[in-house]
Amino acid sequence: MTRRWRPSLGFVLGGALTGTLALSFAGLVVLRYLGPEIGFKNAAILLALIITSVTGGLGWLMVRLLVRPIRALERFAADTRAGAGPVDPPAHFGTQETRQTAVSVIDMARTLQDREATIRSFTDHVTHELRTPVSAIRAAVELLEDSPDLTDTDRRLLAKVAGANQQIDQQLEALRRAARARESRYIGDSRPADLLDEMRAAHPGLKIAIQGETEPVSMAAEGVSLILSHLLGNAVAHGATSVLIDVGDNALSVTDDGPGISEGNRDRIFDPFFTTRRDSGGTGMGLTIVRNILTSHGGEITLRPSTAGTSFELRFARRGTA
Rank of each mutant, 00 (worst) to 15 (best):
Arg3Gly: 06
Pro7Gly: 01
Leu9Arg: 10
Gly10His: 13
Val12Gln: 07
Leu13Asp: 06
Ala16Pro: 00
Ala16Tyr: 09
Gly19Tyr: 03
Leu21Gln: 04
Ala26Cys: 11
Gly27Lys: 00
Leu28Lys: 14
Val30His: 06
Gly35Pro: 05
Pro36Asn: 08
Pro36Asp: 02
Glu37Arg: 15
Gly39Glu: 09
Lys41Ala: 15
Ala44Tyr: 12
Ala44Leu: 15
Leu46Thr: 04
Leu47Pro: 08
Leu47Ile: 06
Ala48Phe: 10
Thr52Asp: 13
Thr52Gln: 13
Val54His: 06
Gly57Phe: 05
Gly59Cys: 05
Trp60Gly: 12
Val67Gly: 08
Val67Trp: 09
Pro69Asp: 03
Arg71Pro: 03
Ala72Phe: 05
Phe76Leu: 01
Ala78Thr: 05
Ala84Ile: 13
Pro86Ala: 11
Ala91Phe: 07
Gln96Ala: 10
Gln96Phe: 09
Arg99Ile: 02
Ala102Cys: 04
Ser104Phe: 11
Val105Tyr: 03
Met108Leu: 14
Met108Ile: 10
Thr111His: 14
Leu112Asn: 12
Gln113Arg: 15
Asp114Ile: 05
Glu116Tyr: 09
Thr118Ser: 14
Ile119Tyr: 09
His125Pro: 05
Val126Ala: 09
Thr127Val: 14
Glu129Cys: 07
Glu129His: 09
Arg131Lys: 12
Thr132Cys: 05
Val134Ile: 14
Ser135Val: 09
Ala136Cys: 06
Val141Asp: 10
Leu143Glu: 12
Asp146Glu: 11
Asp146Leu: 11
Ser147Thr: 07
Thr153Cys: 11
Asp154Met: 03
Leu157Asn: 12
Ala162Gly: 08
Ala162Met: 07
Asn165Cys: 10
Glu173His: 11
Arg176Trp: 04
Arg177Leu: 13
Arg177His: 09
Ala178Ile: 01
Ala181Cys: 04
Arg182Ile: 01
Glu183Lys: 10
Ser184Met: 12
Ser184Cys: 08
Arg185Trp: 00
Arg185Leu: 02
Ser190Glu: 02
Pro192Ser: 03
Asp194Ala: 12
Glu198Val: 15
Ala201Met: 12
Ala201Phe: 12
Lys207Thr: 13
Ala209Lys: 13
Glu213Asn: 09
Val217Gly: 03
Val217Leu: 07
Glu222Ala: 15
Leu226Glu: 15
Ile227Cys: 02
Ile227Lys: 01
Ile227Val: 15
Ser229Ile: 04
His230Lys: 11
His230Trp: 06
Ser242Glu: 12
Ser242Leu: 04
Leu252Gly: 08
Leu252Thr: 02
Leu252His: 06
Ser253Asp: 10
Pro259Met: 09
Gly260Ile: 09
Gly260Val: 04
Ile261Met: 11
Ser262Gly: 14
Asn265Val: 08
Asp267Pro: 04
Arg268Pro: 05
Ile269Tyr: 06
Pro272Cys: 04
Phe274Cys: 01
Thr275Glu: 01
Thr276Asn: 08
Thr276Met: 08
Arg278His: 10
Asp279Phe: 06
Gly282Ala: 01
Gly284Leu: 00
Gly284Ile: 00
Ile289Lys: 06
Ile293Ala: 04
Leu294Gly: 00
Thr295Gly: 09
Thr295Phe: 14
Ser296Thr: 14
His297Ala: 10
Gly298Ala: 02
Gly299Thr: 03
Thr302Gly: 12
Thr307Ala: 11
Thr310Cys: 06
Phe312Pro: 03
Ala317Cys: 01
Ala322Pro: 02
